[in-house]
């Protein structure tokens, strides 16, 4: 009972969502809209679980005085700070001038932007340490990367300035992007799409039931 009902729900809902694509008639034309609304609401409810889990783990860490417990205090304090501000300021929490916006602009934005930005360093170090011309495949990867990286910035054509127009690095980069790159992307896209089709089908038919916890 505890397993069958969810399986049935999955199957029925799945089939309905497949056929809604082919049926322009009401209520099928509204299904997408309903689902997106429902999903947003469930998602917003589920984040309570996540948040409570985060609080629980942090408090446990603090209570047991585990290593670096002080940072759990920081996590808790800032989580509560922005949450309380966000709720206290009501619907207009995102308007300019609120405490929430201040935290967003001067704490959240610089932190998340910098997280993104230090990727540049990691990318360089990964290039240095991991990108090896180990075999023919890896060499091809490197060669393509090399042409694209040079061809996509103005300096590429400065370097290849002595070459005829067609062999300029910028044109080579364009060629790689337009033809072999497109072909490879397509193969990956079609493959992934088929993988998704078959996984989805298995889910709908109840063969893949891991998402409900475990196998048979």
């Amino acid at each position: 009972m505890r397993r069958e009902i969810p399986l049935l729900i999955t199957g029925i809902v799945g089939v309905v969502f497949v056929i809604q694509y082919f049926i322009p008639h009401w209520p099928f034309n509204r299904m997408n809209a309903w689902f997106s609304d429902w999903f947003s609401i469930v998602q917003a409810c589920a984040i309570w679980l996540g948040a409570l889990n985060l609080i629980k783990i942090s408090i446990q860490k603090i209570a047991k005085k585990k290593k670096d417990w002080i940072y759990s205090v920081v996590i808790l304090v800032f989580f509560l700070l922005i949450t309380i501000l966000g709720f206290a300021e009501g619907e207009e929490f995102r308007e300019p001038g609120t405490g929430f916006t201040w935290l967003y602009e001067f704490v959240y934005t610089p932190l998340s932007s910098t997280m993104f930005a230090i990727l540049a360093f990691f990318v360089a170090s990964a290039s240095y340490r991991a990108f090896r011309a180990r075999n023919l495949e890896a060499t091809l990867l490197l060669a393509a990367a090399f042409f694209v990286m040079l061809g996509r910035v103005p300096i590429g054509d400065v370097i290849s300035g002595f070459m005829p127009q067609g062999a300029q690095l910028s044109n080579l980069a364009t060629w790689i992007m337009t033809f072999p790159q497109t072909a490879g992307q397509r193969a990956i896209m079609i493959g992934i799409a088929l993988g998704i089709v078959s996984t989805s089908l298995r889910i709908i038919l109840g063969i893949e039931r891991s998402h409900l916890g475990g196998g048979d």
Binding site: A120, V123, A124, S127, Y128, R129, F131, R132, A133, L142, A145, F146, M149, L150, R152, V153, P154, I155
Partner: peptide, 18 residues
């Protein structure tokens, strides 16, 4: 442009080491 050149330079250096 500079950043790309640096990355390429280090790929070459890394491969030389390899």
């Amino acid at each position: 442009s500079f950043a790309h050149m640096i990355v390429i330079a280090f790929i070459i250096i890394g491969n030389v080491a390899y």
